[in-house]
Design a protein around this nucleic acid. Structure first.
Lengths: 144, 144
DNA sequence: CTCACAGTTTAGAATTATTCTAAACTAGTT
DNA sequence: AACTAGTTTAGAATAATTCTAAACTGTGAG
């Protein structure tokens, strides 16, 4: 077995550890979803797309559980919710500081690394308010 | 009558002109909604909030028409849709280049003038795509 | 000024994403 | 093996938004 190869049993063990560290009981559903989500980096999913994907992989998880899990993972800091479309919520496996390209027509999100874009001149918020974070969305279209 | 005072009849006439210029037939509903929206500057409304407001002003307009009108005004460039909340859509009467503070908990949007924030380093979009616009949302919380 | 019709409004039904509910299940302990 | 708190689930419920098809109204022609 090659050094970079990680069999699914190993992945499962790692995933269970990760869930435990986040205070989440490693149920079958959570392990399956987490394995899928965190196998590769920088994934962007919607509840629907993730449910489709895991269902097609032959794993039975209800849509309600997918919603619950996405929110729990988000609360635990394993995911980040991305609000770019009025119609649906996206979740990003990249929780670090970064921004996005968004192609609305196709529901396509693409990460822009955190150091790439610099935002200067953010004014002081009105009294009583504090900046939580600054989101930049670069909306793109198919070129003409 | 003071020089800056604009009676409602004058407002109506101006509004009708504005709608005509945008290729929108000045129906009673559209004139009423436009008068309300563009009387003051920098308003942020949701379909629901605008419907409430106009209803309380004693004007009868259906919620469906409010939705239609908001979208038509947006298409005509009289409004700009602001996507900051997964739960509802905001519309902004300020269509120029500018950004926003957003206080999610209270659904509060505050304009940041266009020259205030500088965004540098936006990378080239992937081949075949062109930047449509860059949105910056400064998410704020009540200070601790 | 009146007609005719394309465009508009509307109530209510339909749709869509998401959340809720309460009953059945299961991981982790004892 | 039994217990229990936390979890999953199907299906109902909710909320924002869109659709539908019937009634209504600007507006340009005559």
């Amino acid at each position: 077995m090659g050094k970079a190869v990680r069999d699914s049993k190993t992945l499962t063990v790692l995933t269970i550890g990760r869930l435990r560290q986040s205070g989440l009981r490693p149920t079958r559903q959570r392990v399956e979803l987490a394995s899928l989500l965190f196998r590769d980096h920088d994934r962007h999913v919607t509840a629907e797309s993730l449910h489709d994907e895991i269902t097609k992989a032959g794993v039975k998880v209800s849509l309600a559980t997918v919603y619950n899990t996405l929110h729990q993972f988000t609360q635990a800091g394993l995911l980040r919710q991305v609000i770019v479309d009025a119609a649906r919520s996206y979740f990003d496996t990249n929780t670090g500081d970064h921004q996005h390209f968004f192609l609305e027509k196709e529901g396509l999100l693409i990460d822009i690394p955190g150091e790439t874009i610099a935002v200067a001149g953010v004014p002081m918020p009105p009294p009583g308010l504090a900046v939580d974070r600054v989101d930049v969305v670069v909306r793109v279209k198919r070129a003409p």
